Simulated assay, not measured.
Amino acid sequence: MADAAALLNLAETDVRTEIPKETYGPVLTKAPFIFVDGTFNTRDLGLIPDSPLRANFAFRSGALAQLTDHGKAVLKGKGIKRIFDLRSPEERARMPDPDLVGVENTWIHSARPDSTPDLGRFVANGGEEGYRDMYLEVVDVYRDSWKAILEHVRDRPREPFLVHCTAGRDRTGVFGGLLLTLAGASENVIALDYLLSRIGTEPVRLMLLQFALEGSNAMDQEQPGFENLCSLRRSCWDSFVDGVKKEYGGFEKFVTDELGFSDDDLAKIKANLTRP
């Protein structure tokens, strides 16, 4: 497993700077990352350094449409029984998930369409204000998916699962933070997992920059706010977490008060995340 400090140092590489393949390649082939041919940014939340979440249970990744037979075999070898897709109907239509034998695909129509990021909200400082707004919207828009994932954790603790969106970065990043928080992870561990997507998406960095350009309606990559939108920073994650506390009273209160889980449910979810 890679050292946390070394991972963090690499994850803080500016998004405009290419990470050489000889640098990121060895990182993406060992824990917490998993090389799954045909996708990217795949890792085991239980293998993040110092993660209290048990290994070989909760996985995250980018889109799966291009999975090769080798990639499918790797997922099968991890024992994954269910895949949760956090994408929009349009994203799914362009890149449908593959059917994997013995794996249940779950997609739940979100409460409303994702809004286009307002680049003006990302201009100041490191874009903290824009990220807080964007991720709080993700929490709300995908609440039915969060509920289904947590029901899986509560009811099917022996069935490993994977969650993905398109880049496996933002929507999936919010999921990772929610799950690690419930498992009792420290703020540093949670933030490290979030920042690791900078390394995990490096193989498709240029493609994702173009995806962000189209998705934000930016004139070009030099438009104010665009760089911050494409970057991952600890300060932005912290701003979002502070927003969750102010809006909902924290992740746990969101799970009980907004998603409708009882205190007993929450206790069982926590236990199933940390104990085999």
Rank of each mutant, 00 (worst) to 15 (best):
G243Q: 06
T116P: 05
K270T: 13
R169Q: 14
T116Y: 08
T256C: 05
R156M: 03
V153F: 00
P117C: 13
L180N: 02
E18K: 14
E252H: 03
I19W: 00
N228L: 04
L273W: 00
A31Q: 08
S239G: 14
A11L: 10
N41H: 05
G25D: 13
P276F: 13
D193S: 15
G225W: 05
H70C: 03
L208T: 11
F59S: 01
F211C: 10
G184F: 03
C230Y: 13
F84K: 01
A267E: 07
A58I: 00
Y142L: 15
H164C: 10
F261T: 10
R158L: 04
K245I: 12
N217W: 07
L136R: 04
I80P: 01
L136A: 09
T201A: 07
S115W: 08
D50G: 02
K78A: 02
L206A: 14
G46I: 09
V189T: 15
L100C: 07
L136Y: 03
Y135F: 15
E104N: 07
T172G: 00
V241K: 09
P26M: 04
D263A: 14
A111E: 15
L67I: 07
P98T: 08
G215W: 03
W107I: 04
E222Q: 14
N9E: 12
E151M: 09
D3P: 03
A58Q: 00
G177K: 02
R205D: 12
P224I: 08
R143A: 10
T23R: 01
V74Y: 00
L119R: 08
V204E: 11
R82F: 01
R171M: 12
W146Y: 15
T106L: 08
T172W: 01
A148M: 05
N56Q: 08
S115C: 07
T17V: 15
M219A: 15
T166Q: 10
R158Q: 12
L180T: 07
S231P: 07
F254V: 12
F59L: 04
V101S: 11
S216D: 06
C165Y: 09
D50W: 01
L208N: 14
P49L: 09
P224A: 08
D118C: 13
L179A: 15
I199K: 02
L53V: 08
T256S: 11
P276M: 12
A111T: 14
M219I: 15
E159F: 01
V244H: 06
G215Y: 01
C236Q: 15
Q221L: 12
S197G: 06
A267P: 02
K78R: 12
V174I: 11
K81D: 01
